[in-house]
Design a protein around this nucleic acid. Structure first.
Lengths: 226, 226
DNA sequence: TGCTGTGAAACCCTTCACAGCC
DNA sequence: GGCTGTGAAGGGTTTCACAGCA
């Protein structure tokens, strides 16, 4: 449906948030210039890869000198669209949902928690992280009234599909899912999944391999979920 | 304990935990057989990819019929090494650490929370998720005494490096890091990072492409890389 | 017939090596 | 000299298409 002209390689896009974190920290430390070598070291990547990534964003480097840190911060912020604040609803006020509601990383990155909802009436009215838990049945109203564009799903695996359907029906098209399942959503809805169970089991596997002596450290495979 | 184990492709390994989740659920629902098409649908992947993945584990499928669900569950469990319990220490008893300490996904997947530590003396002695918060300075002793092999880092970004060094010094070689930074660890130490900030910003980017880009149309940097 | 198992092609990403500019 | 920008090479992953078997 959407005219998806992929300007940037997916792998580059996936790294942009980390560039932004590093470059922002550099800017706050007063660094005005950085070379690809140093950036690569901080990112844990190859310098050529860094140069390819940054070149794809446009010419912000000077040969023989390095990259203009403030310019890159501005450019990446622009590309990622972090300039605009986004209203977020956290669905599920269990342990994880409560933690996320209190997580200061959200507001610091332009994500305003506009609502925390739960399907359990017993939880409605309680407070988590300064937010009053509201009834999940009122989702559609909340989304419309507060301009919510992102939903964070922190519900049990068995409820994930149901919750996804509810937020999509309410008009949300960006989902961050903390659950093991693949969510079946309509075209036009974007889902990113953070699967703690999978990460743990992957660790378990990689740990089993540690007994084998190896000359170089096996890099963890990227878990870029589809 | 495995007949003959060849090296599995990293991409396959990264998917195994999700296969295991799906297949376990199928087994509990009484399904004895599943076809690659159906498995692919639930995984959100291609059927050929599923067949390649499963073929790499050995012959557990029957042509014209499908795959033996219980056999696959057993095989993947074996490969991932989830049979053994692993003792985990959670480092950082803030919002996220507390949530993880209460997260029932850990015990259900063979990860026993053996300790929760924090560097803040004010927090020591309090309880989270049934675990008493202990002093982070005693890490080395705890790790040795309780056979801890996995550390979950849930500390602020500014403390991540410090915390990583501490757990590695204590003898832990498997780290699950909830933080934005790249951790510099010695060879032989495996780190998996779950970066909530990055996920959010990625969502932000993907969402920006769904709506009308505000002022600045994608200025078409030649994507012809390589 | 139906579905698995698998060569082969296509694709993507990373890394190297070096040309180009300051 | 130093560092960016980029063709080319190399390696891995996905997808197709079909052979092989119950």
């Amino acid at each position: 449906m959407s005219p998806r002209e992929r300007v940037l390689p997916a792998a580059t896009v996936a790294r942009l948030p980390r560039y932004l974190e590093i470059l922002t920290a550099l800017a706050e430390d007063g660094h005005a210039i950085i070379a690809s070598d140093e950036l690569a070291r901080r990112l844990g990547a190859n310098a050529a890869s860094v140069r390819k990534d940054l070149a794809a964003l446009g010419p912000h480097g000077t040969r023989g000198v390095g990259y203009d840190v403030p310019a890159l911060v501005a450019r990446i912020s622009d590309v990622l669209g972090v300039a605009d604040e986004r209203a977020v609803v956290i669905v599920g006020a269990g342990n994880l949902g409560s933690a996320l509601a209190s997580y200061d990383g959200f507001p610091r990155r332009g994500f305003v928690i506009a609502a925390v909802v739960d399907a359990d009436p017993a939880k409605v009215g309680r407070e988590v992280g300064g937010h009053r838990i509201e009834d999940a049945r009122g989702l559609a109203t909340l989304v419309a009234a507060r301009g919510i564009s992102v939903a964070v799903l922190a519900v049990p695996a068995s409820r994930a599909d149901e919750a996804a359907r509810a937020v999509v029906d309410a008009g949300v098209r960006l989902l961050l899912n903390f659950g093991p399942a693949h969510l079946d959503v309509p075209a036009g809805v974007v889902v990113r999944s953070v699967d703690l169970s999978s990460e743990l089991r992957l660790l378990s596997f990689l740990g089993g391999r540690l007994d084998v002596p190896s000359d170089d450290a096996p890099d963890a495979p990227d878990a870029a979920a589809g």
